[in-house]
Design a protein around this nucleic acid. Structure first.
Lengths: 204, 204
DNA sequence: CACCTTATGACACGGCGTGTCATAATAAAA
DNA sequence: TTTTATTATGACACGCCGTGTCATAAGGTG
């Protein structure tokens, strides 16, 4: 066990916190949970089932995953942060909002370490409305990030709200559509989905 | 009690089903629940609290409302059905998809019996991410209805998927924005939100 | 009247998410 | 090495949601 849990953080002095190191690998537990979900179904797999299969207690499971949905959505967090319009992501837009949004979406997709795992997650999400709902909740920070960026560029508040809402809905649909098929690259799906937006560029 | 529960169905022979008539008015219970949610907060109000305040048993509450969220979302169903592109709603679109979607959205808004109640619902929804998530779940039938309509008009499948996703996201944002303010008419919000979409009309 | 349909509610169950508490394991300090 | 502090771990219990079963009450219909 404990097979290479963490990539050896080569940082100079990581300030070792002095304490019992963890013996549970969250990534392995999440992968196990995804497998059980795919096999037995999401709501027919209880948290205790997962804990028993992982050899840990149910309470320890909640120490690493705040909820059952987090077992599925948790792994998408890095992507969401990356595609949230982090400073320097694709630079700034020179009047072409649509091109900027395309760059943001594709840059977020490029940060996914393992696309096949992401595809498995998204397939489970698409198969269960409850999880898809939670998706829009998980995508909320990304939405506010984009909206804030638009507001900072002088976009009217209502337009910023509507554009960011459309961005979330459209990109989520693109991801779902990509996950349902077998194409390796999600970028074409994202660009095609964003082409639905006009983004009038609030001409000066 | 039992104050005019059902509008007297003036149908000729409604086939009275012979049985004990209901003594619970679902609309009154939902209104009571909304008041409690607004006063004490959504998750700080349990189903048993609502049942006790309504003078009924918790199980009877579940007989009329499938879930706690249905107490808030249930009243929106007629609107969703009306704005789901019912045949004859605004007629067909003559190449101008955006105009058709505007008509569908505004027609749905026109079916709301009491806008102030809807505003109350939407404000509670907007204040609780859990409820907003469920919203996208409740809007799913409307989305498939619009997508089917687009498909029947020869729209490519992926475009129909993306347009319907954008429609849901944008109109929900418009409704939320309207509910946050005090303007009586939601139509301008809906049209402004839909102006974000280009809807290329899939030129022949 | 008897009969039947339906509403109602009491009870129990599985599951999620949370809290508290005691215990074990390990690193750092004395 | 001994002590101490920090952390992981798990056992127990709780409130709440949603569901099922079952018995009872209340009103129409024959």
């Amino acid at each position: 066990m404990n097979a290479g849990s963490l990539s050896d953080d080569g940082s100079p002095a990581p300030t070792r916190p002095a304490g019992r190191p963890a013996t549970i690998d969250p990534d392995a537990v999440a992968a196990l949970a995804l497998r059980l979900f795919a096999e037995r179904g999401y709501e027919r797999t209880s948290m205790e089932d997962i804990a028993r299969a992982a050899g840990i207690a149910r309470k320890s499971l909640y120490r690493y995953f705040a909820s059952k949905a987090d077992l599925v959505w948790g792994g998408m967090d890095p992507v969401l942060e990356a595609s949230g319009g982090a400073p320097g992501t694709g630079g700034d837009h020179d009047g072409d909002l649509l091109a900027w949004l395309r760059r943001v979406a594709v840059a977020g997709a490029a940060t996914i370490p393992d696309l096949s795992v992401a595809r498995g997650r998204l397939r489970i999400i698409a198969a269960h409305p409850e999880l898809a709902s939670r998706g829009h909740e998980a995508l909320a920070p990304q939405r506010t990030s984009i909206r804030d960026h638009l507001l900072a560029r002088g976009c009217p508040p209502d337009a910023a709200d509507y554009v960011s809402a459309a961005y979330i809905g459209v990109t989520f649909a693109a991801w779902t559509r990509w996950a349902a098929g077998t194409d390796p690259d999600p970028a074409p799906y994202l660009t095609a989905a964003l082409d639905v937006l006009r983004l009038p560029g609030h001409a000066p």
